[in-house]
Structures are given as structure tokens and as C-alpha cells.
Design a protein around this nucleic acid. Structure first.
Length: 275
DNA sequence: AACCAGGGTGATG
DNA sequence: CATCACCATGGT
């Protein structure tokens, strides 16, 4: 593993991007301020930022083929932020509060499972369940002491009883249903990636425990459908209070980023919604 | 100890 | 179509 240094175009912030609620398998490295570690695409990665630069502990090839796409580095986020900020003062405020969020290109299957687990759940516990899922059912990553996200095939034969150690509650049966339907090709993630958005939503919602919100999250974070705009309890409240009169369609291809900015801003300012 | 959590489902008005 | 109890677990 060769350590390389790459300069990432602003705006880009690791804590904002990795801990804003879009991904659940990244954590700060204890005792190393600015450093984060996690697993995606079957690979473990440590990266850190200092003095406006982000460094990746990986080879040039892995950076080019895996991590640059994952962090959506080809996209011009300065332009997206500017476009959203011009739409409303509140949106400009949310953008200024977290100017370094990027929408990660996560794997479809992992994103689907992650947001199945997220239903009626809180983020600390979501992270714990997913960590146990990977440790118990994922492939170990050589030399990293970490585990890849388990494949659909690895979960398709499980039962709620055998998944009990996850402590996922009633969501376990949804994970199993997703694994079985994906493994059998009844839900075709490759086809969904190419399908018209409305068809893609419908396909995903064939899975037990996948409704409009979970499907929207999977499509935004796992399929990079950037016009998706997941509406959870926080977002519904935030739209009412902060952006009355706006609808998701108003944001076009920047809807996903807009949603993440508003979500994060609202979570960090709960006093805005006091009774 | 209660209340709540990045909801979905199935059963009723 | 709108509402509502219920779901399993544990964080705060």
C-alpha cells in the first residue's frame, strides 16, 4: 500500500461528507485529528485532511479507479453550491454551514441495506448494526482488520433467528427479503441503475421494508440519482419551517445535494424546530 | 423511565 | 386517500 497525497478541489470536507448521515461505515481515527477510516467497494481506506488538502493512503490506481469516483471528484461542487445558494437565503445559510459536503457514490446493494436498517432508527445504532453485519457476514479484507459489506448471496440463506446477533429488530426480515430478491434476480440492481427513475423506485419497493423514503435514499446514495430528495421526519419538518413553497423538483439535478445540506443543517440546529 | 429514532405495513375511517 | 397502531431495539 503506497501512500499518496492528492490535492482535492474545494469545497471538500471529510467530516462533513463522511458524517452527515449519507454513509455509516466511516469513523475518525482515534488520536489522529483530521484522519478518517472506513471501508467501501471491498477496500479499506485511511485518509486525512490538513491545511486544505486531503491525503489518501492508497495507490495511484486505486485512487483513480475507486476513490476518485467514490468521492465524486469529477463533479464541480462549487457550481452546485452556488446554484443552490442563489435560490434562497436559508439554502445559502445551510450551504455556508457545511460547504464541504459531497454526495458519495456508494454501492447500490450497500446503500439499499443501509437505509433498510435506517428505518425508524437512530444513526448511532444504525452504525452499530451495520458494523456487526459486516463483521459477521462480510469477507475479511486482508491486512486491514476490517470487513467488506456482505454480498446478497451471503445473506440470502439467513433467517431472523440466525440474524438475531445483529440486534436489528424487525428490520432483519427486510434485509433477508432484499438479499433473496437480489440474489435471485427478482430485483435487478444493474437494471435499476439504467431504468427510468419512476421504474427504479417501483422496482426497489418490491422489497419488504422498502417504501418511498428508503427507495429514495438508495437511489440517491447508491445509484447517484441526484434528482432524488428523500423526505424523512426531519426533512418534512425542515421544508415546512425553512423552505415553505419549495418542492423537490425545484432543485433539479441538485436536489440530492440540497436535501443533504438541509438535513445536516436541521440536525445541527434543532432549536429551529422547538415546539 | 419515558420518549424517540433518516419508516413501512396492514387495517380501518 | 388519510390516519393509526404496531413493529424490535437501544440511544439520549
Amino acid at each position: 500500500m503506497q501512500e499518496k497525497m492528492f490535492t482535492i478541489p474545494a469545497p471538500f470536507s471529510l467530516p462533513q461528507t463522511l458524517d452527515c448521515g449519507q454513509a455509516f461505515r466511516w469513523a475518525p481515527v482515534p488520536g489522529q485529528p483530521g484522519a478518517w477510516q472506513g471501508v467501501a467497494q471491498g477496500q479499506a481506506l485511511t485518509l486525512w485532511e490538513s491545511q486544505g488538502e486531503v491525503s489518501f493512503a492508497c495507490t495511484q490506481e486505486d485512487f483513480d479507479t475507486l476513490w476518485a469516483p467514490y468521492f465524486d471528484l469529477a463533479e464541480d461542487y462549487a457550481q452546485k453550491y452556488a446554484a443552490l445558494s442563489s435560490m434562497s437565503p436559508i439554502l445559502a445559510q445551510a450551504a455556508a454551514f457545511a460547504p464541504g459536503i459531497r454526495i458519495l457514490r456508494q454501492e447500490p446493494w450497500e446503500a439499499l441495506c443501509s437505509f433498510i436498517v435506517s428505518q425508524n432508527n437512530n444513526i448511532p445504532r444504525i452504525k452499530g448494526i451495520l458494523a456487526r453485519l459486516c463483521e459477521g457476514w462480510g469477507q475479511p479484507i486482508p491486512g486491514a482488520g476490517q470487513y467488506a459489506f456482505p454480498t446478497p448471496q451471503a445473506l440470502a440463506g439467513e433467517t431472523p433467528e440466525t440474524l438475531a446477533p445483529l440486534r436489528a429488530g424487525y428490520r432483519a426480515k427486510s434485509l433477508i427479503d432484499a438479499a433473496q430478491k437480489v440474489a435471485a434476480g427478482q430485483v435487478d440492481l444493474t437494471a435499476i441503475a439504467q431504468a427510468p427513475l419512476e421504474d427504479a423506485r417501483q422496482q426497489l419497493q418490491k422489497i419488504t421494508g422498502v417504501g418511498p423514503k428508503v427507495a429514495e435514499c438508495a437511489l440517491l446514495y447508491g445509484f447517484h440519482r441526484t434528482q432524488c430528495f428523500p423526505l424523512d421526519v426531519w426533512m418534512k419538518r425542515a421544508m415546512q419551517v425553512l423552505l415553505p413553497g419549495f418542492s423537490p423538483g425545484d432543485f433539479g439535478g441538485n436536489a440530492g445535494l440540497a436535501q443533504q445540506l438541509i438535513f445536516h443543517y436541521s440536525r445541527m440546529h434543532p432549536e429551529l424546530f422547538a415546539a
